[in-house]
Amino acid sequence: MKRLIRQKKTIWVIAGLLIVWALVYDYLEPLTNYLTYNLFGLEQGKRLTEAIRFFVFEFPKVLLLLTLIVFFVGIIRTFFSPERTRRALAGKTTFAGNVMASLLGIVTPFCSCSAIPLFLGFVEAGVPLGITFSFLIASPMINEIAVILLFGMFGWKVAVTYVVTGLVIAITAGWIIGRLHLEKWVEEWVYKTKMGDASDTEEKLSFSDRIPFGITAVKEIVGKVWIYVALGIAVGAGVHGYVPENFMAALMGKSAWYSVPLSILIGVPLYSNAARIIPIVSVLIEKGASLGTALAFMMAVIGLSLPEMIILRKVLKLPLIFTFVGIVSFGIMIVGFLFNLIF
């Protein structure tokens, strides 16, 4: 009974917070203007003023969006455990399986430290290698933080583009790896692993039971990521008025054809999460980098990383790792060129 009252209270608190959220988000622009021009008494039109205004507006905006989405994704994720995804993908055939694995990759919680148990679990359940790879590509590359930061800084078109092209890469790359029949390049011991059955420990939760998971996700993710967002936007604000518009144009602009492969080459070994890289990418674009090149750089940094490869080396032989990195990089390159061509 006590628990029930507490749950009801949580729901009301959440509803109240949502209304406050909507109000703040709606009035953010006039609020920022009031703060910079009236309260701080800064002179309109000056470089420094605009830099400060940029930060005072962008930082709370992105943080607000992030908190909201992370909260809901935290709740949604309680419905998708890797164990469930594994059962769903067992025995799926190619292509349809690749599509499903890539989509599940978006919603299933994933961190590079759990790449190995995921891989082992999938293989043991009889999920084909190519489908497993579709999951391993989509899962880190497409996540709520990347999507929301892209939306906050570039608008919904870029965010949707990122998700769709990311999915296409995950599906096709996984499909190709499946067709190449590379099972021989998986370490032998992987096939000997026996996995126990823990399906009876699946927690049964009511909807209000899931709310705390959303709150925990906000505490954990926003608590860790806000500093990078702040730094990124501060750099962006600083660069905003001071660095010449087409500073990056020669190196990362459309006219330089080599810019796409070059930024992938730089991006693959780099390891960073979306929160750190996207504010930087927004600066690059503002200073003349083309969208395709910037997108390719971002995908390479978030989707492929040296630490993940080193972890995967435990279960995959080197040729398979190179094939995997090669195919995904190639996919990212096509996306980069395509966008430079279209936009």
Binding site: S81, R86, S114, I116, P117, G121, E124, W189
Partner: peptide, 13 residues
């Protein structure tokens, strides 16, 4: 040990 962990049916640590 990852193999031992897997034997419990656990994929998320």
């Amino acid at each position: 040990d990852i193999v031992e962990i897997m034997s419990f049916g656990v994929m998320t640590t």
